[in-house]
């Protein structure tokens, strides 16, 4: 696939999410302009002004064009509740979610892959049964209950970690990147840095369990399949060390599947983040989306639809590319 093709594909994906978020606001019963303004302070003059600004007096295709143009510039209007431009809110929010999701995927990825390999290599052993039951229960576990249990044991009973929040309230971390771990280092505030880590542990643990189940399952089944392949048997027969076989041959061939699973898991994490962030009062995208829905903050909901789709498309795109890099056979297919 040529570069041009990729760009085209991304462009269409972008148009698609614009179309979706553009439609969403028009599906809500009532006048879209009033919905966008909300109840607060909507004098007739202001409504007219908004209607003009949003181009609502124009035809639908024209409106869509204006919306797409604004979206390209990252302009989604003002939040009804906070009266701040949504983009400026998003700038602070996404690093919070990303930081959390990143840590979740790192720990669950490492442990999931190791467990999956162990289970596949030592089939029908304790490890295998353990890994299979773990992933089965993990799939069925409602994350919000899991979060409550984790909070109960580690925060309430043992008092090891804070119940909620992203950093102790006494710290004020100046904004550089929005990633608190990095920003607290920028500020050379050691206490703040450790406070950030301490706040991260429980939510990242809870969030990671969602993806753990998936990664264990996929790694295990990919390994089992590849172990059966002829070339692995040949490699074994040739007398290669088991470890060598596992890492050189099987792992390499299982990697595309595992990467796909990681990509999928990242999408899942976005859903998981909604619950996790709400329970842990983590000031990220997920909690923001819930709050906006509760507040009927339609411009924010609209932007929420847009941004969450954008993230998923970007993640999917990146995993596709990564898979092609690790497995040249798939190129062009």
């Amino acid at each position: 696939m040529s570069i041009l093709n990729k760009v085209l594909k991304l462009f269409f994906a972008f148009l698609f999410i614009c179309l979706m978020s553009f439609t969403v606001i028009r599906l809500i019963p009532g006048d879209p302009v009033t919905n966008l303004i909300g109840e607060r302070g909507a004098s007739p003059e202001r409504i007219e002004e908004m209607r003009k600004n949003l181009g609502m007096d124009k035809s639908i295709p024209e409106q869509f064009f204006i919306f797409t143009k604004n979206a390209l510039q990252g302009d989604f209007g003002e939040s009804i509740v906070s009266k701040q431009p949504i983009t400026s809110e998003f700038k602070v929010l996404w690093p919070a979610t990303f930081e959390l999701a990143l840590f979740a995927i790192i720990w669950s990825g490492i442990i999931g892959i190791v467990l999956g390999i162990l289970a596949a290599v030592k089939r029908n052993s304790f490890w295998d049964y353990g890994a299979v039951s773990l992933s089965t229960i993990g799939f069925a576990m409602p994350i919000f209950w899991w979060a409550l249990l984790v909070i109960f044991f580690f925060a309430v009973m043992l008092g090891l970690f804070p119940v909620s929040g992203r950093v102790g309230v006494e710290f004020e971390i100046p904004y550089h990147t929005g990633f608190y771990l990095i920003d607290s280092l920028f500020a050379e505030d050691k206490a703040a840095f450790f406070s950030v880590i301490k706040h991260m542990v429980l939510p990242a643990f809870v969030l990671g369990t969602v993806s753990l189940a998936l990664i264990v399952r996929v790694t295990r089944s990919a390994f089992i399949d590849i172990q059966k392949e002829d070339y692995i048997r040949t490699a074994r027969a040739k007398g290669l060390q088991p470890a060598q076989v596992i890492f050189k041959h099987i792992f390499k061939n299982a990697l595309p599947q595992i990467l796909t699973a990681l990509g999928l898991a990242f999408g899942q994490l976005l859903t998981g983040a909604i619950m996790t962030e709400t329970i842990f009062s983590w000031p990220g995208l997920g909690r923001w989306i819930i709050k906006s829905i509760e507040a009927r903050d339609y411009p924010a909901v609209q932007a929420g639809v847009f941004y969450s789709m954008l993230i998923i498309i970007i993640v999917n795109f990146c995993t596709d590319e990564l898979i092609k890099i690790v497995n040249p056979k798939l190129r062009g297919s």
């Binding site: 925060a155 008092g159 119940v163 102790g168 309230v169 006494e170 009062s281």
Partner: peptide, 16 residues
Amino acid sequence: VTDSTVRLQKMKSGEC
């Protein structure tokens, strides 16, 4: 802190 349990937690831990 909208959740009263969490508020109390923070009070106990000396944060509030």
